[in-house]
Design a protein around this nucleic acid. Structure first.
Lengths: 167, 167
DNA sequence: ATCATTGCAAAAGATTTGCAAGGTC
DNA sequence: GACCTTGCAAATCTTTTGCAATGAT
């Protein structure tokens, strides 16, 4: 749901900041420097991240733009709630990715380099809906992760094992 | 992979205990009362469980058959490693299910009653393999969870909301 | 001015680990 | 007897919470 509004013939998509602003206002919550910093930071590039990676990529304590750990966690929940981010669990930790304005997709997870690769499949959504229907189940979403080894890791492992062993 | 061995025309499947015994021996590990108790207990009925549920269903401290928490966690890892159990994450906790001798399947997860329902789909496995091939990805497995509300919960919620509100 | 938000310190929940005592091969 | 395992206590890791100070509307 890329949240687009039609105004006459003009299509208006809100930026993540604007969309979040709406969310905050509708709940009587306030927009703060920290929240703006985080939205800005998170939507400046598309990737998957966990709380620690996010915090590591933000200004450190003492620097301008610093956001404390509890605030980051609180904000991440809000972003999920606001539909900006989607959350899932991988290897025991919470992983986030863009949801707002980003199409539904699933992942390939490389157990060697731990990277996530995206793929899109309408067929999967169709299959999912049929399975749900067969079970009289009201679907709200799904999560598919294909585990294995990516091409790159498979190749470098075949070629030489040194890189891995040296780490 | 139900691990069946052909001996002439006789098909021999190892019990989970036997299969685990093999695993232990091949690694120079020892079979103990605790490990036997846990395998026995876990494979006496088919269901999904987390560490806490398992511990709660075992004899308490002081009683015969008691297994300490660290030992349970250590054993669960071994069972996963030995191919007896499969592990996945749900709502922040690790969930285990039978793997050995049990066919590949996926789950519907009811967000209301938190129950897991199994379903099997060859089509999904096929789709998964095609996606992986397209990405030159070497698949080792996958995990699909369809989220939503099960029929029962949908019905009881439609009928009356009291049960939920009173909790 | 009111009331949400922040950062700190500490708590909480799940899982893991060091280690001495005990059990298995 | 050698050495793997266990249970205990304590540590770890990730995430959450209480609370006084600060900030947004």
């Amino acid at each position: 749901m890329p949240e687009e509004y039609s105004l006459g013939s003009v299509r208006v998509s809100l930026t993540p900041q604007e969309r979040f602003e709406e969310y905050l206002q509708s709940r009587g919550m306030r927009n703060t420097d920290q929240r703006r910093t985080l939205v800005e930071h998170i939507f400046s590039h598309h990737d998957h991240f966990d709380a620690d990676q996010l915090i590591a990529s933000l200004p450190a304590k003492g620097e301008t733009g610093y956001v404390s750990r509890p605030t980051v966690y609180r904000a991440l929940s809000e972003f999920v709630d606001a539909g900006l981010l989607r959350k899932f669990e991988l290897a025991g930790r919470a992983v986030y990715e863009h949801d707002y304005g980003y199409p539904q997709h699933d992942h390939l997870y490389c157990k060697t380099c731990q990277r996530l690769f995206e793929f899109k499949s309408d067929e999967l959504v169709d299959l999912r809906n049929r399975v749900a229907k067969d079970h009289s189940f009201r679907v709200t979403g799904h999560r598919l992760i294909i585990h294995g080894i990516c091409d790159e890791c498979a190749k470098s492992r075949r070629r030489t094992r040194r890189k891995v062993d040296l780490v």
